[in-house]
Design a protein around this nucleic acid. Structure first.
Lengths: 199, 199
DNA sequence: GTCTATAAAGGGATAGAC
DNA sequence: GTCTATCCCTTTATAGAC
């Protein structure tokens, strides 16, 4: 019935780190949520830094692999973009703190993600580039630098999550309205991109 | 020749807080950069929290007021969007750590920005909405929800800064190439938005 | 493996001399 | 106003019993 202790610790740590970041997280809180004491944290994971690293790698890998997979679908590029937008926004809606978590670590330790990025997105840009060229040849797309397209995609998808309090204040939406806004964004972003890329 | 002490402290604090965030910043480091000792920090600003608050309000106000001003220009909306994109990207290029700084504080204390946002962006969305309606009536734009447009604008502009290490790794650009990428992005984002909004 | 108790270090804040 | 010295709390990490 109970998971083994190591898993409980890991899940508690994930929750706390994702919410509070490395600096803000407290080992005591992780221990409390896992229902054990601090000493056991160090027994299973030598230090706070190592525990964090384990959590971060797993979270980053999950996001990157899902995103990269969506971008590699065997579809014409325009359809692939729609798939990506829907997949990515749904993924983050299920874990709304994830982007800020990853971005904060990116700032604290810019090199931390490099290995994970290199591992999960090899040739991603080339695949994107080929998809663009194919679609251009088919007359379905105007040509665009794949690096810019990748940046556009990510920026349009994550901004409502990382800047939520700001956008929600500026637009004076309540939580329900903002939820609807997020849902609507899947279609909005998809059509926005498609229209921007008509030949 | 020397600025007065309070200013030196404030500038040192701004640099450290913007780079490291509240939790990551050390009063000792701020004192070192200001060329004074820790006790003086508390003499001028009672606590770390107050010092941070002063820095944060100033930084947030600067970003928001410049952004809001650009969006209120007395121009047809399509031109205003171009102005905004160029202004905003240039602003952040001069202070590349600013977005992550603001976003981290947004996460640590979601309410902190509300007052500042409310102060600097009153009626911003309405102004944007009127601009859209005017341009739609003139046949220069297709209709779009101003909230989505605002999100698009911000997301497209800040993503290359907050996700820089990730994008730079995925695209394998060196620093010079990434700088060129940022410069090119002003035109790229402008045309991307304009094309997405043709009637 | 799990606990209690405690060491060790870090860092914000203050006292008090000058 | 500015400094040195120090307090004291928080938090990570370890020792050692069970």
């Amino acid at each position: 019935m109970e998971q083994d202790t190591e898993t409980r610790i890991f899940e508690a740590a994930r929750a706390v780190f994702v919410e509070q970041g490395f600096e803000g997280a407290r080992m005591q809180e992780i221990a409390d949520r896992a229902g054990i004491n601090k000493a056991l944290l160090h027994y299973y994971f030598r230090s706070k830094a190592r525990l964090f690293e384990a959590v971060f790698r797993a979270s980053a890998a999950e996001v990157l692999s899902q995103a990269a997979t969506a971008l590699r679908q065997d579809q014409p590029l325009p359809d692939r973009l729609t798939t990506f937008v829907h997949t990515y926004i749904d993924l983050i809606r299920a874990n709304p703190h994830l982007p800020a978590f990853v971005l904060e670590e990116l700032r604290r330790n810019p090199d931390a993600l490099k290995a994970v990025v290199a591992e999960h997105t090899p040739g991603l840009l080339d695949a994107l580039g080929r998809g663009i060229e194919d679609a251009v040849a088919a007359g379905r797309l105007r040509r665009i630098d794949p690096a810019h397209l990748l940046a556009h995609l990510i920026g349009l998808c994550i901004i409502p999550f990382i800047a939520r309090p700001m956008l929600q204040t500026a637009t004076q939406m309540d939580d329900a309205a903002y939820d609807a806004f997020l849902e609507a964004r899947k279609e909005e972003v998809s059509t926005f991109i498609h229209r921007a890329l008509v030949p």
